Simulated assay, not measured.
Amino acid sequence: MKIVVIGGTGLIGSQVVTRLGEAGHQAVAAAPSTGVDTVTGEGLEDVVRGADVLVDVANSPSFADDDVLEFFRRSTGNLVRAARNAGHYVALSVVGADRLPDSGYLRAKVAQEELIVAAGLRHSIVRATQFLEFAAGIADSATVDGVVRLPGAGVQPIAAADVAAVVARTAVGEPVGGIAEIGGPEVLAMDEWVRAVLVARSDSRAVVADPEAQYFGTVLEKDSLLPGPDAQLGKIGLTEWLAR
């Protein structure tokens, strides 16, 4: 199959391209660096032509509320039009996105999902929990005066390698026709997870559990970011990921 991976040079996309190629598929990485701009539409029709599947794992270059919403609206709008002849549209989203409307980023992801559904394409939306690779970035966003303040809400962080494996499997399978959730193999408190990563990296910042601390603009309940009981679980836990 010809499978076009939008965002195919990034953290998840590059691994999806590799996995699909190893399985014998024609996996095409599409990104601005390869001449494909989903916001302007440049190069999009050409790269998607003849594709059996389109995988969308692209992300906004800016997480400012207005910027990220504009990105996903324009990018997804162009993609669903370009993918009208593809048999399967696969998109990567976020567990709990529809439960946290105060987060500009998550509002934008919900808008992306709605555009895909409204387009009437055969589709699969894979909602993932936070990537283990994002711990340092979360710490940076929550640092005030050298102290990392995070809610103690539950998280089920998943390794990027496990995300890529599920996305690749989904791309070559039958469309879900809705949402499938994936998460890591263990539930941790967010402050516990981030603290363990910083310690492993010899980062001296203190991590404090603060129930009033916000997560990218929103207050979390205990289970706001946790997947449901039917979620597919990755194999790589925090300890193994740190050892790698």
Rank of each mutant, 00 (worst) to 15 (best):
H123Y: 15
A139K: 01
L106Q: 11
G183N: 06
S202W: 11
G146V: 09
A209H: 08
Q214N: 09
F131V: 04
D162C: 04
S204N: 13
A160T: 10
I182H: 07
L150K: 01
A142K: 02
A165V: 12
E113D: 15
H123M: 09
A118G: 11
T129M: 02
Q112S: 11
T143W: 04
V117R: 15
I138S: 00
L198F: 02
G137T: 00
E174N: 11
D140P: 00
A196L: 01
A164R: 02
V163K: 06
D145I: 11
L115C: 03
A196P: 01
A165P: 00
W193F: 14
L188W: 14
W193Y: 13
M190D: 02
S204R: 15
P157T: 05
I158T: 07
D162W: 05
L198N: 02
V207G: 02
F216W: 13
I116Q: 01
A189F: 06
V148P: 01
F131C: 04
R169A: 14
A180F: 04
G137R: 01
Q214D: 11
V163D: 03
A200W: 05
A161P: 00
L220V: 06
D203Q: 05
F131Q: 07
G154S: 12
G154W: 10
F134K: 00
A136L: 10
A161I: 11
D140A: 14
V199C: 01
E133K: 02
I179D: 11
G183P: 02
Q130D: 02
D223S: 15
T143N: 08
I179Q: 10
P185E: 10
A200K: 08
E212R: 14
K222G: 03
V197H: 00
D162E: 04
L198A: 01
E186T: 14
P175D: 13
A119W: 10
V197W: 00
R122Q: 13
I116V: 15
A139L: 00
E186F: 09
A213L: 06
V147S: 06
Q214V: 13
A136G: 04
P211K: 12
E192N: 08
V155C: 12
V197I: 10
S224T: 08
V207W: 05
Q130L: 06
G183R: 03
V194C: 01
L132N: 06
K222V: 14
R201M: 10
